[in-house]
Amino acid sequence: MEFLKNELFLIAITFGVYHLSKLLQKKTGWILLNPILLSIAVIILFLKIVGIDYETYQEGGKYIEFWLKPAVVALGVPLYTQLQAIKKQVFPILLSQIAGCITGILSVVLIAKALGASKEVILSLASKSVTTPIAMETTRVIGGIPALTAAVVVCTGLLGAIIGFQVLRLGKVKSPIAQGLSMGTASHAVGTSAAMEVGNKYGAYASLGLTVNGILTAAITPYLIELLNL
């Protein structure tokens, strides 16, 4: 069964599982059957059953993960198409981003501490709201475990994609712009892709939230953590 470790086969599996997961969600319409969550679960299960470790999986997986960076660059297009609308409200956007960024870092750190998380786990959670490359880099800078951050970042993204719009409706956040921004700020690229499915306008503001919060989080987290003196 050495062939199961073939990196091209592992890539094919990833595409196939994701495609089937998407089909399944379309058919059932069940929101908890998030295609990424399901794919991750199925692939982990598969790897465990056939006895392949993560390092081997990444021989193929890295070629998929590679596209994360160009995909983030591509978000510049929806950002550009919404630029005129954004220019008219620089002030509300900037204020909401600063508020969202600080809320994100402080709340996750303080709640995790109150619930008894260890210091390295707390540090790995701090940047959970922003996109993987920024979050992992931020964690490395403040001394957490970058790989744990990557996992938590994915969970945060899925959480936002699955419950984000319901939470916003319950919290009486009504304007499409505020909803889009919140999705990108709280749940980075996964939240953005969920917003993109609702509409281009939502997607554009979500990618704005993802960008601004990414920049702010990378800039603020190290200082905020120092101030908190954990």
Partner: peptide, 29 residues
């Protein structure tokens, strides 16, 4: 080993960020 702190903090914090960001934007706008 640290399931509750990790999941609890992540869920609560994500909800807070969603609502705070949305509200600050709506109010200032």
């Amino acid at each position: 080993a640290q399931f509750i702190p990790i999941i609890g903090a992540t869920i609560l914090s994500t909800i807070l960020v969603l609502v705070v960001t949305g509200w600050v934007h709506q109010l200032t706008r």
